[in-house]
């Protein structure tokens, strides 16, 4: 064998040796599951039916249409959307305000950032326990306001409370990112605004917010994607079969199907449907992100054309 080919083979062998664990992992825990899950979603595999047979798109169709068996399917999607509506704007606005406050020249910026970050290092289960007891009928909140509202079991307040928990917990991390973006804004923009007569609020509106727009966009996208997947908190607090309908999100329903109903094929179908939704959103985001770049390219072409015309 030629020396060159030998060297080539050896190089490839080394490379693949290094990524072998990754490849094995990928095949076993990424590819295989995805394929199997996809296949199963087309069967009727469940605890009741351990010898599955193909049913085609039946699972999906049943999910969408069968109101008797899957009465929570569409409502769970609604719940998920509602949750996203509660958390994403609130979190964004709160993060902006807190970051702006920390960005004005005050002392103790590090102190505040540390305190806000504590929930991010609190084990999520522990945090749920803490909130669960805080919101209990005899918990902290009720003690302070001398009321007796069972926040978490009350249909109208449950989801709001979980949303609040999520916004509260995410503030530290979000502020960290937003603040570092704010510090990247050219200070002479603030000075120019000051010279033109802008007050503190106007400076925020016209310099700060536009300046961190990419970060805002980032939060929007990640917020939406993780919002779609909300379910873990509910499972911790309520277990997998709660009667409080207003907290049954899409992913919660998925767990319900898997754990309580042992209906693996339906659960798989639900995961894939979720995957499809997230994919669509990611593609839309890609398009929007590159929309700016596309506009710029068009603008530059126009300028070049103008310059060329002028010469003639």
């Amino acid at each position: 064998m030629k020396a060159y080919t030998k060297q080539l083979l050896k190089r490839n062998a080394t490379g693949y040796a290094f990524i072998l664990p990754l490849l094995i992992y990928f095949i076993v825990f990424q590819l295989a599951p995805m394929i199997i899950a996809l296949v199963i979603s087309f069967t009727d595999y469940s605890l009741a039916n351990l010898d599955p047979s193909f049913v085609g798109f039946d699972n999906y169709i049943e999910l969408f249409t069968n109101k008797a068996v899957y009465q929570n399917f569409w409502s769970s999607l609604l719940t998920t959307f509602l949750y996203m509506l509660l958390t994403v704007p609130t979190s964004m606005i709160l993060t902006l305000i807190v970051s702006a406050l920390l960005n004005s020249k005050i002392k103790g910026e590090k102190f505040f950032k540390t305190i806000f970050y504590i929930p991010s290092v609190t084990v999520s289960v522990a945090m749920m326990v803490m909130w669960k007891q805080m919101l209990a009928p005899d918990g902290l909140i009720n003690q302070i306001f001398s009321s007796n509202i069972d926040f978490l079991n009350n249909e109208s307040t449950a989801l709001v409370m979980i949303a609040l928990m999520s916004v509260w917990g995410g503030l530290g991390y979000n502020v960290l990112i937003m603040l570092s973006a704010m510090k990247n804004i050219d200070p002479s923009l603030y000075e120019a605004a000051e010279m033109d007569g802008a007050g503190a609020f106007q400076k925020f509106l016209y310099v700060t917010v536009p300046g961190v727009m990419p970060t805002i966009f980032f939060f929007l996208v990640t917020g939406l994607i993780s919002g779609f997947q909300v379910g873990e908190q509910m499972v911790i607090i309520y277990g997998t079969a709660t009667q409080v309908g207003s907290v049954r999100t899409y992913v919660y329903e998925m767990f319900y199907q898997m754990r309580e109903m042992s209906n693996f094929s339906v659960a798989s179908a639900m995961s894939y449907f979720l995957f499809a939704i997230i994919l669509v959103f990611t593609l839309i985001q890609f398009r929007l992100q590159n929309a700016d770049a596309i506009k710029e390219r068009r603008m530059l072409k126009k300028i070049k054309r103008e310059a060329a015309n002028e010469k003639n």
Partner: peptide, 26 residues
């Protein structure tokens, strides 16, 4: 008074019109 900065300090997200009009708007 009015000031012209070394790096121009133009607001990047506003059009030229809005940049010039900013002071008057304030």
């Amino acid at each position: 008074i009015a000031m012209v900065f070394q790096n121009y300090a133009l607001f990047p997200n506003m059009t030229v019109y809005d940049n010039i009009a900013f002071g008057l708007k304030m």
